[in-house]
Design a protein around this nucleic acid. Structure first.
Lengths: 236, 236
DNA sequence: ACCTGAACACCGTTCAAGT
DNA sequence: ACCTGAACACCGTTCAAGT
């Protein structure tokens, strides 16, 4: 049906452009939704733009480039972390572990963001709050200044690397059965290696392939790092 | 100059196609050269093919996909590692540190490969040798089987994450002066934060930005992990 | 069996032109 | 000031066709 001929040529202004203006927040919101729903590969300038019903070029008025968008995503995730406070010298090791567990929880809630976080210098508001919190716990634990400072680097590096690794292995979202089959195959492979050249790998095929699907591996790293830091704290 | 007219139309077979056939080894050689010369981003199927004077489709007869090529690169790097052996219970901690230093050295020699290594399950010949070596050192140190097995996961994760991080920060190859200027700026930024909300970050601006350019940060992680593992070994 | 050209469905970023 | 279409210079992978 075409418009009737007596329709005024210049009608009253349309209800509104319907199109609210672009801004950083809407862009990051959209990117976050994409990363949660479809993983990191789905976060392209083009897809974000498409989701916002515009062209990729439009984003560049609000975001310098893809790297900056990645950084903004990382800081969003850091904002969602609920970190232990205030630091307690009596239980600093448990607080440190809780902080790391919370960091991993937040990263896991947006799989893929770890990929953007791993090399980033933590400069956003939320990232700074995380560093400050960790410093508090570590100083409460009696670590020297330099050790505490380097630990603030080491701790997120570990958590982020674990999250990144989990994300890489989520390739083509396997079902739990697929994963179990893969792990079983791996165990069989290790066990069947030539025992003269790989005696320990053969003997430890079981332990080597255990805990890959859960939190035990992460908890092991927590235990190692916390114990190592405690050893450095006792020295002086 | 055109060919003289009396040139036979069908000349004796040309000396040879000049073109030796493609194979996995030549492909990995080329990819390795590219990653060393130009970084990981330069390793695309298309660029590798171009370097070999063919089209990208030709590679798929020898390599399943980009991910497999990445894995082959990682194993090449693992082959170049010179790991301590045999394990010595008297100095297992020093051997472990030496092994990790050697792993980082190898990764640094091909910046960018860390990116491909970080989520990879170590299945190549050379990667298995590395695992076997680490297991030997850890069992010499008295770790229980499960702890040794998980440590074999934790150790390469740490080294690879450090290498990856260094590579990300090598963005657009900065000069040493650029880096120093960046670090100075960072220190100034931390020091100028509001002291009421970030007291420790302000107070520790110096330590937080120290050692970013050298090996001290890595050595700190070595010390923490080794001490942590030693603590687990003493328990039983 | 191996190789190839051409195509498909994507990227990030820039730029001149519009409003 | 903000937005846009179109273009540039790239990706990984597939496939029918060649040798």
């Amino acid at each position: 049906m075409s418009q009737p001929p007596w329709r005024p040529i210049s009608p009253a202004k349309p209800v509104r452009p319907a199109r609210e203006p672009l801004n950083r927040e809407r862009i990051v919101d959209t990117a976050l939704r994409l990363v949660v729903d479809q993983g990191y590969e789905a976060v392209s300038m083009r897809k974000v733009a498409q989701e916002l019903r515009t062209g990729p070029a439009s984003l560049y008025a609000h975001v310098a480039n893809k790297r900056e968008l990645d950084q903004l995503l990382v800081d969003r995730v850091a904002q969602s972390m609920n970190l232990p406070s205030p630091p307690d010298p009596e239980r600093w090791q448990e607080q440190l572990k809780d902080a790391m567990r919370e960091m991993l929880r937040a990263m896991r809630s947006t799989p893929g963001v770890a990929r953007a976080a791993i090399g980033a210098v933590p400069l956003g508001e939320a990232a700074l709050r995380t560093s400050e919190c960790l410093l508090g716990i570590l100083k409460a634990g009696g670590l020297p200044d330099q050790a505490a400072a380097w630990a603030v680097d080491l701790i997120p590096l570990y958590v982020t690397a674990i999250a990144f690794e989990e994300d890489v292995q989520r390739v083509a979202d396997w079902t739990p059965e697929d994963l179990e089959r893969f792990i079983d195959g791996l165990r069989g492979h290790f066990a069947s290696l030539p025992a003269d050249r790989f005696p320990l790998t053969v003997a430890l095929a079981g332990p080597l392939t255990s805990g890959a699907d859960g939190d035990e591996r992460f908890e092991f790293g927590l235990a190692v790092i916390t114990a190592g830091l405690a050893a450095l704290a006792e020295k002086p």
